[in-house]
Amino acid sequence: MNFKLSIIINSLAFGLCGSGMGQNLVTNGDFETIGIAGYSAQIGALPQAPSQL
């Protein structure tokens, strides 16, 4: 019984965690830390003011 239980628990653990399921691999995907760490450094140097503005 303990062996069977071990296999079952391992299956669950592998299924849920083994593939990194659900983890967002993008850093700052909501752009919340830009501006706190330094907007110009994070988002790049802005070009010269365009004539359209």
Binding site: I7, I8, L16, F31
Partner: peptide, 25 residues
């Protein structure tokens, strides 16, 4: 643009493993 997310799509075997485990329990 906002709310950018990249997540792994579980392999076909992964849901099978979960179902197997749940059935066993």
């Amino acid at each position: 643009l906002d709310g950018v997310s990249v997540v792994a799509v579980p392999e076909a075997s992964t849901p099978m493993m979960i179902v197997l485990g749940m059935t066993g329990l």
